[in-house]
Nucleic acid binder design. Structure first.
Length: 135
DNA sequence: GCCAACGTTGGC
DNA sequence: GCCAACGTTGGC
């Protein structure tokens, strides 16, 4: 079981949009590091859904529903995408401000590389974010 | 709206 | 292969 963090701008695709669809392709990722993380995803892995630009906070948990396959929005055949499904909306969003202020989360890849849209989390980091959402 | 970080492109 | 120019992302 691996843990991930995936960013989306909520005015383009929000956690509620994912809930409405039930399952969705996480397409449009055009960064090699992020692609590498998506290739490493396995069915049943858990991921934090993070809203960038608007909200700037973790809002939900999703599961990886289907492993890497060609990105349907890509005509070059070079890029892959995974499918995700909603698991649980966080009781309270965990803001970037909260994450940055927490020493237990200082080593998150997202913090160190803010432009990376798909990044790994340790189990401890994942569990810590979930616990913060329940406070 | 600004700016830092960083990936990509293209000239040499 | 290097590096300057440029575009994009994302936080503030």
């Amino acid at each position: 079981m691996n843990y991930w963090l995936m960013k989306s701008e909520p005015d383009v695709f929000s956690y509620d949009d994912l809930v409405a669809k039930g399952k969705a392709e996480w397409d449009g990722v055009r960064n090699h590091a992020a692609q590498g993380h998506m290739r490493a995803m396995r069915k049943g892995d858990l991921a934090i859904f993070y809203h960038s630009n608007i909200g700037v906070e973790a809002v939900g948990i999703m599961t990886i529903a289907e492993e890497a396959a060609p990105d349907s929005t890509d005509e070059t055949g070079k890029w892959i995408a995974v499918h995700v499904a909603p698991k649980e909306k966080l009781a309270k969003p965990v803001t970037l401000k909260t994450i940055k202020a927490d020493p237990a989360l200082a080593d998150m890849v997202m913090i160190r590389q803010s432009r990376l849209s798909v990044s790994p989390l340790t189990k401890a980091q994942f569990d810590h974010i979930v616990s913060l959402s329940r406070q």
